[in-house]
């Protein structure tokens, strides 16, 4: 079971959170300017990293805020937690 440190509420059990997928995927500012391949890439294609993965979590049973996490997808160890808009923690994995 994961233990995740919510930036506002502190360390809580995994079951209090909702997983939100890969982080840092920016919604295109002008979707109409994109071709099918670019739009499909935004909608569906993912990095699916084996290793340090930047991802989104929501504290759905608590403060209900979204934040980002760097988690190793092999060991599931959480390397760092950071607020949306902040710099990711340094890469000392």
């Amino acid at each position: 079971m994961l233990e995740i440190e919510c930036p506002w509420c502190g360390s809580r059990d995994q079951d209090e959170f909702h997983y939100g997928g890969e982080a840092h995927i920016v919604r295109p500012a002008d979707p109409d300017a994109l071709n099918d391949e670019q739009w499909g890439d935004y909608l569906f294609f993912r990095t699916n990293t084996k290793g340090a993965h930047a991802e989104q979590w929501c504290h759905s049973s608590g403060c209900r805020r979204w934040f980002n996490v760097i988690r190793d997808t092999v060991s599931y160890a959480i390397r760092g937690v950071y607020r949306v808009g902040d710099e990711p923690p340094s890469d000392d994995l």
Binding site: L2, Q14, N48, T49, K50, E55, R71, T73, V74, Y76
Partner: peptide
């Protein structure tokens, strides 16, 4: 969550 660890919660 995504995972390559062949185990889950």
């Amino acid at each position: 969550y995504t995972g390559y660890g062949q185990r889950g919660s």
